[in-house]
Design a protein around this nucleic acid. Structure first.
Lengths: 102, 102
DNA sequence: GGCTGGTATCAGCAGCGAGTGATGTGACAG
DNA sequence: CTGTCACATCACTCGCTGCTGATACCAGCC
């Protein structure tokens, strides 16, 4: 049973600022300037985090002139949600499986 | 719309060893000795991680003589899965919401 | 072409967190 | 009561990672 989740994706989402970015991008597609306004973080910092998100495949970029729009890829998040749902379901059904004391 | 996920729980699950522990506990309830055998990690290290998982409310303990059984709490994982599912759903419906370039 | 504004990259620093060894505690066997 | 086993806690080190400032890059406007 492959209910294991790869850690890298979770690590990417485990940062407050990155999670805030993801939450904002879940509502609408934004460019870096908007994210700077919304989060109040420095542009450099945001660019670093966006790089991490991009390399993890969580977001995709769409250049628009001088601007760069970032869009959240729903499938990646949905897949992660499914894995966790499987884990929870597995834990529910196997709650009384208790290995004997050695 | 509260689609934000609290980071602390994700950080707890973002560690490979902790995620392995959670995956194992999703299958059956185990005590520390079993986890030492399964993961190959030192007992001290496991105990530290189990402490983190316990304080995060991810697992619950059940003393059994000299042994301590750890059981995964499915609701916490399920709740996390729901939050991610909401994020993915929100991202799907709001994919074409694009704020104008400033 | 030169300038400006939007974005990405690089290097350095600081703080957090995972891993480890020593040690404490509590329960069972003898 | 004493030894042993299961488990927890403490103290410490060290590597990773997030934040920042400086800088490079690229597109549009004059």
């Amino acid at each position: 049973m492959m209910t294991s989740v790869d850690t890298d994706l979770i690590r990417v989402l485990a940062d407050p600022l990155r999670l805030q970015i993801v939450t904002l991008l879940a509502r609408e597609t934004l460019c870096t300037t908007h994210l700077v306004e919304e989060t109040g973080a420095k542009q450099t910092n945001l660019s670093n985090h966006l790089r991490v998100l991009r390399e993890a495949g969580v977001v995709e970029t769409e250049p628009c002139g001088r601007f760069t729009y970032y869009r959240l890829k729903p499938d990646v998040i949905a897949q992660l949600a499914d894995r966790f749902a499987d884990l929870a379901e597995s834990a529910r059904t196997a709650a009384e499986n208790k290995r004997a004391c050695p």
